[in-house]
C-alpha cells in the first residue's frame, strides 16, 4: 500500500517536472489534457468492460463449456453403444451355445430312444422265437407220441394178422413199447 502511494507521488512529481519546462509545453504536455485523457480512458475502459469483455468472455466460456458437454455426451453415447453391442454379442453367443446344447441333448435322447427300441425289438423277437421253439417242440413231441401210438396199433394189428390169434392186447402193447423204446434208445445212441 505504502509502495503504491509512493509510486503515485513519484508520477505526479515527474509529470509536474515535465509540464513545468518549456519544451514540454511546446510539445503539448499539459496536465489538463492529461486529466481529460485519463477520464476519457476511464470511461472507455468502463464501457468496454461492461459491453465487451464481460459479456464476451462469459459467452466464450459458456460456449466452450457447452462444447465440452456435447463432446462428453457424444463420448458417453459412443461408450454406451459399444456396451450395448457387446451385450448383444454376448447374448447371441449365449443363445447359440444354448441351442447347440439343446440339439446335443435331443440327439442324445433320440439315440437313447433308438437304442431302447432296438433292445425292445430284440427282446420281443427273442421271446417270439423262444415261444415258437417251445411250441414246435411241444407239437413235435405230441406228433411223436401220436405216431408212436398209431405205430403200436398198426404193429399190433399186423402181429394179430400174422399169428392169427388175438393176443393179450395189454401184454403185447407193453412188449412192443419196450421194443420201441429200445430201438429209439439204440437210434439215439447210434
Amino acid at each position: 500500500m505504502r509502495y503504491r502511494v509512493g509510486l503515485a507521488i513519484t508520477i505526479m512529481l515527474l509529470t509536474l517536472l515535465l509540464s513545468s519546462c518549456g519544451a514540454a509545453q511546446e510539445l503539448g504536455i499539459n496536465w489538463r489534457g492529461l486529466l481529460g485523457q485519463f477520464i476519457a480512458f476511464g470511461i472507455l475502459l468502463g464501457l468496454l468492460l461492461f459491453f465487451a469483455y464481460r459479456p464476451i468472455t462469459r459467452m466464450l466460456n459458456n460456449r466452450s463449456q457447452r462444447i465440452k458437454e456435447s463432446m462428453d455426451q457424444a463420448e458417453y453415447i459412443k461408450e454406451q453403444t459399444a456396451k450395448t453391442e457387446k451385450m448383444v454379442q454376448e447374448q447371441l453367443a449365449e443363445a447359440r451355445r444354448q441351442g447347440q446344447g439343446l440339439v446335443a441333448q435331443a440327439e442324445q435322447i433320440g439315440e437313447r430312444l433308438k437304442e431302447e427300441a432296438r433292445q425292445q425289438a430284440k427282446q420281443d423277437a427273442e421271446a417270439i422265437v423262444a415261444r415258437a421253439r417251445s411250441e414246435i417242440k411241444a407239437e413235435n413231441e405230441e406228433s411223436i407220441a401220436q405216431l408212436r401210438r398209431e405205430f403200436v396199433d398198426v404193429a399190433i394189428q399186423a402181429a394179430e394178422k400174422v399169428i392169427n390169434r388175438a393176443l393179450d392186447k395189454e401184454t403185447h402193447r407193453q412188449l412192443i413199447e419196450e421194443t420201441l423204446k429200445e430201438s429209439t434208445d439204440l437210434k439215439k445212441e447210434g
Binding site: 509510486l7 508520477i11 510539445l27 503539448g28 504536455i29 499539459n30 489534457g33 492529461l34 481529460g36 485523457q37 485519463f38 480512458f41
Partner: peptide
C-alpha cells in the same frame, strides 16, 4: 497526435 494521449496510455500501462 496529442502527446497527452500517449503519455496517459504510457502511465496507465506503467501503473
Amino acid at each position: 497526435t496529442d502527446i497527452n494521449v500517449p503519455l496517459m496510455l504510457a502511465l496507465v500501462s506503467f501503473l
